[in-house]
């Protein structure tokens, strides 16, 4: 829960910092689409790492309890 809040807060703070340029790459605001897409991909990779981590922890516990 805390993590979700942190991620949300980081999003909000970034939005507050972001300014639009005269540069055409930014002026129409479409850079946000790219940022969102990359963020989704990165978040997906992190979620995958977390599930891997949990699975390992489960096996570690099983091995510890066995002998």
């Amino acid at each position: 829960m805390k993590i979700k809040l942190l991620i949300l807060l980081s999003f909000i703070s970034t939005m507050a910092f972001a300014q639009t340029h005269e540069n055409p790459f930014y002026s129409n605001g479409k850079i946000y689409v790219v940022v969102t897409v990359i963020s989704i991909i990165f978040t997906g990779i992190v979620v995958y790492l977390i599930t891997l981590d949990r699975r390992l922890k489960k096996t570690e516990k099983e091995l510890k309890d066995k002998p």
């Binding site: 993590i3 942190l6 991620i7 980081s10 970034t14 910092f17 300014q19 340029h21 940022v35 977390i50």
Partner: peptide, 22 residues
């Protein structure tokens, strides 16, 4: 575990900020 989440949040922040900050 805390440092794993710290790492993920910092990288996510750097992606967003790195692309959007002036």
């Amino acid at each position: 575990n805390w440092w794993k989440y710290l790492g993920a949040v910092l990288v996510l922040y750097s992606i967003i900020g790195g692309l959007l900050f002036v």
